[in-house]
Structure formats: C-alpha cells, structure tokens
Amino acid sequence: MPLVELVNLRKEYKTLVAVKGLSLTLEPGDIFGFIGPNGAGKTTTIKMLATLLEPTSGIARVNGINVAENPEAVRSLIGYMPDAFGVYDDFKVWEYLDFFAAAYKVPKIDRPGLIDMALDLTTLTEKKDAYVDELSRGMKQRLCLAKTLIHDPKVLLLDEPASGLDPRARIEIKELLKELKAMGKTIIVSSHILPELADFCTSVGIIERGELIVAGPIEAIMKQVLGGRVLEIRVPDIDREKATALLPSVEHVKSVKRIGETLRVDYSGTLDDQSEVLLALIHGGVRVQSFAEQDTDLEDIFLRVTKGLVA
C-alpha cells in the first residue's frame, strides 16, 4: 500500500482553481520534491494533505486513511512545517517543544528524552533554555523542524523549509533533511528553488497553474522531458557548417542547435552509442575540439516544462 496517495485532487476557491486534478503516489522512504513557481499550488496541495484545507473533489490518503474523512487519524501520522510560521513569545525552546509534545499526546514521561533528541538532531541543544524569540531565523526554522519531528511522524510535509535563509542556514537545513532521509522518513518537500532539492530527492514533481506537469524519479523525468542527454560539441569555426549538416543524419540525434561557439545536440541513444557521434564527425572530416555530455539538472527541466505562468 502506498504511504501517500493523491487521486485527482482538486481545490477551488471562489474564482480560482488552485489545484486541478492532481494525482501522485509515494512509497515509504520516498523523498518527493515539489517544484513550481510561486503560486503554482504547492502550498495548497500540501495543506490539503496536512488536513488544513478540505479538497473540493478528489481523494488524498495517508497510510490508506482518507484525509477528508478522518483528519484526526492522519494528523498523528504527519509532521507539517508551513512556509511561514510564528512562534510564541515568552516561551523557552524546551517549553515550545514540550507544548507540542503534549499537544500530540506524547506521554509526559517520554517528553524530556524526545525533546533532547530533537534538539540534538537540529543542533539546538545549547539553546534549550533560550527564549524562542531570541533565536535567529535559521534556528527558528530548525526549531520548527524539531517540533515537526517530536511525535515521530511517518510523513513529513515541509513547505519551503529553506526559504529566506542565508547560505549557511540553508546548507544546515539541507544536511538535516539528508539525515531525516537516512532515518527512513517519507518526505514531501516543496521549493521554488531547484538546486535545493536536486541532491536528495528520490523523485520530483513539477507543478504549474495547479497541474502536475511531470512527476517521477529525476533521471526518468530528464529522459521524458529532454528525450535523453545533451551533448556539447565544440568545433572550429570553419567546420561548424559541415558539422551542423552532418549531425542530424547520425542515429539517435534528435536536434542540433548552435549556441555561440558550441553545438548543442539532443541525443536519445545510450552512453555506448554516444561515441558513434564522435566517430561520425571525425569520419566526416570535422575537427573536434571538445566533446562532452552536458550536466543537465532540474533547472533545465523546470525551464523547459514550465511556461513561466502562474495561476
């Protein structure tokens, strides 16, 4: 049974359709990166999963439990960290965690140990007795993550966990997420910044105007969107015409584009077949200065599939 399952999930506001029939399945241990421009429907989807919003239609299930029908049961399974959240003034760090542990019905006797563990994981141990409003933004973010973990949820819903943080705090959050991945948590993490997610997500989904445009493991998406890999070939100026004419006839070459001094080739063949392209060029009398596979990342995919539109 999938741990998280969204079937045709839809959310309408008065004049706006925020999420249009979104479907998704996540297995235990999956780390799903939810990517999309601001206002694409990421937060709405996460809020529906977190039982904060009622779907207009469609079904969202966590561990087989329908979110709309039995939100109480779902709440103990999920840990939700919103993109913008406040903390209580006049509250100490350990009191904050103790408050949420009590709110999640963690037995009183287990709380001190769990609080220490959560603080240790988020490297906030030395701030245990500090007041919450004295913490830096990055620390507050980590504290919120510690709060999210306090009842040991199976699924973590993290909405823009690293937004608004400086580079160091960003890296710390990233490390923390890797640790959570190692702990076997299933995580849905949203971001509008791609490199944040590329490192540790097992799969990603790109959402725009409420629609999931592509979803799946990163490699599969690359193949689906780019149709394979991108080769960057550099040839001298005088051979460039010849190479441009020759390349399309090579097997698995889908298109050739001239970008500055290089030729950019979309290639759908395997890695072994790739040498055929070089061979064909050399046999054709083209002098090749460099031949390399371009590092395609999420950013390329994102720019290709989205149209820069926001719902």
Binding site: R75, F100, K147
Partner: peptide, 13 residues
C-alpha cells in the same frame, strides 16, 4: 495573526 494557529490546529489537541 502570529501564524501559530495552523501548527496548533494540526496537533491532536
């Protein structure tokens, strides 16, 4: 207003 309500309402309280 302080954006603490979502977290509170999501708990089992």
């Amino acid at each position: 207003e302080q954006r603490t309500y979502d977290l509170l309402s999501l708990s089992l309280l």
